[in-house]
Design a protein around this nucleic acid. Sequence first.
DNA 1: ATTTAATCGAGACGGTACGTCGAGTCTTGTC
DNA 2: GACAAGACTCGACGTACCGTCTCGATTAAAT
Lengths: 196, 196, 196, 196
Amino acid sequence: MTSDTAHRGNRHGRSEQARRAVLEAADDLLAEKGFAGVTIEGIAARAGVAKQTIYRWWPSKVDVLLEAFTEDMAEHLTPPDTGDLAADLRTHLANLAEFLTASDPGAVFRALTGQAQHDPALATRLRDEHLSHQRARDRLPLERAIARGDLPDLDVDEAVDHLVGPVHYRVLVTGTEVSRAFTDNLVAAFLKQHER
Amino acid sequence: MTSDTAHRGNRHGRSEQARRAVLEAADDLLAEKGFAGVTIEGIAARAGVAKQTIYRWWPSKVDVLLEAFTEDMAEHLTPPDTGDLAADLRTHLANLAEFLTASDPGAVFRALTGQAQHDPALATRLRDEHLSHQRARDRLPLERAIARGDLPDLDVDEAVDHLVGPVHYRVLVTGTEVSRAFTDNLVAAFLKQHER
Amino acid sequence: MTSDTAHRGNRHGRSEQARRAVLEAADDLLAEKGFAGVTIEGIAARAGVAKQTIYRWWPSKVDVLLEAFTEDMAEHLTPPDTGDLAADLRTHLANLAEFLTASDPGAVFRALTGQAQHDPALATRLRDEHLSHQRARDRLPLERAIARGDLPDLDVDEAVDHLVGPVHYRVLVTGTEVSRAFTDNLVAAFLKQHER
Amino acid sequence: MTSDTAHRGNRHGRSEQARRAVLEAADDLLAEKGFAGVTIEGIAARAGVAKQTIYRWWPSKVDVLLEAFTEDMAEHLTPPDTGDLAADLRTHLANLAEFLTASDPGAVFRALTGQAQHDPALATRLRDEHLSHQRARDRLPLERAIARGDLPDLDVDEAVDHLVGPVHYRVLVTGTEVSRAFTDNLVAAFLKQHER
DNA sequence: ATTTAATCGAGACGGTACGTCGAGTCTTGTC
DNA sequence: GACAAGACTCGACGTACCGTCTCGATTAAAT
């Protein structure tokens, strides 16, 4: 894995190899030992990297996790566009629930959101760099439905909160299972508010 | 309940004075310096107490915060009962928002909920010892309305999630302001599903 | 062992039972775990006695050991009086070597002497309460020989130092074995200085 | 031997500065507050060094003292060689007495010897790393005298014990003053055994 | 016969120091 | 100039004993 062409310093530019090793080590440690088990020293040891290399490129361990999270997120959680609002919302919320409860990047998200409760700077970065983009995607089905005339011209931001809020609440607060029935009912309740 | 001056614990003589000093010091430190600023050493120093005294009675700093939180919570967040479902829910959600965003015990709650993302044992204790009681209170307005016939016989648990979920989501995830308009709209949307 | 007539406090006078238990526990702990393994808490636990009971009667752990040592010493190391100086000295030094290297109270003596290097108050007590008496006994064979005219009127204190000094030196400093040959040679060398 | 400014240890860069600061702080603390006043925390604080730095290089406080002692000992207590056995022995024993009772490294030696009574591992190290060398020096005057024919071919080891034993005994056990008269008499008595 | 006071086991208390872990900074020599 | 290695200072961890302090129970002398 660590190839024989290992990069051990060079004149120009940063080692992509070290960067990847760090991100993977951080991800692995989070999965194996939880957030408290992720330490700079631990990452460095597992990645076969010097601590200084981590500090050179990331201000703190949450920044490492944030970057790892960004890599993993890539193409996640884009809602479908079938022209059927109810179906699209049901699919999207079910995907969201799956992401939050059962995926590796979902675990990172939960850890980062937890840490953000203690760390306002992280909270801001998390919102600016991730949530804002995700919320833009969350708005899409509603905006399309309004454009189609399938939905009145409601406050889309509040509507998104009404839809994704209960899912996050279950995941982050109550720990209750987020079943397909729950998300489907949530969509049904939402739509009922706006039907003729 | 707790006796006049000196508490008698196991055999004789746990110091109620030390116990209170610890809980208050922990609360103060959380308010002043945030979760990371709460350390056993810091609590001990501020409370004028030996570290061993803390370790004797609490397994970890989150247990101290949990107990401090319990003390502070006492009579919080019981929904009113005016017989008017809409008014009661509006008041209750507004109180919840106020609690979560602007009160000292609310700050403790956010910190503990954040920490619970890294600590399953804490998550369980938080749910068993606090959330379950709060949810029971959250259910009351709905149960009374159903009993009065003002609401159909819906799934009360899901309904509670739909109402308090978006508020928690804004507080814990997006950090958006939770205005009176937001909670009022939330109640209005909820009631619209069930109106005649 | 701890009888049913256990003494648990009375108006006048101290519990002999507790006193013995403490002294024995201290001795046992020294034998088992060395000087560092002797702690007030450890003695109390092993003796089935409250810490306060120890502090009531002994200022420190070395005082406990000192008292235990006194009890054990009782009739040790009194030189014989056969009228034959050489024989008496040989026997006495051999007994001294045996005491210092192979007996339980000898181990306590070594520990206390070691501790006395760090603790001038202990050093003083050890000298006043034990060494002075032992030295008086050490002088006896020489004083008797002088009275008999078997030895010139030398400085008895220095002579005692010349005789017992090398034995203590081997025990406390070099750790070399103190054989019968060594003590016999020591006596022979001493006598040779004064023969005529 | 030790390089100019910064010592390079394992790989590169053990701080010679930190090492010296630790040894000096330990020495100073022993002189000022006695053995019990020497603590790792105290050394660290006085040396302006982190506790971890001490633990990185020394297993315990006695190892620090042992190393400090080694540094200080360097050129101490080498007996003179004037060709006059009596004079050389008198000088050497007087120097020994002065070292043991009145010098700083002598105080360290007494403390370490005291501690060695509780700590067999320390006893062994003390003997192997120091006493053996000192005893080799102690033997020199006798060996030279034998070579010159000024002394019969006696057991040098026992003779050394007879000479230095009483001095150590007074210092470590009785606490009596070790005057020039005492050491001179000791030498005189020793020589009397072997005179024509 | 009852009071009363010294002593007991128990153990909580404020402290000091322990030895360990990880943080974040710095220096050194290699590529 | 980035890298691996690792020593450095610092702060907090959780533990062990220290010596002091109640507490309630026990018990024999003094009422």
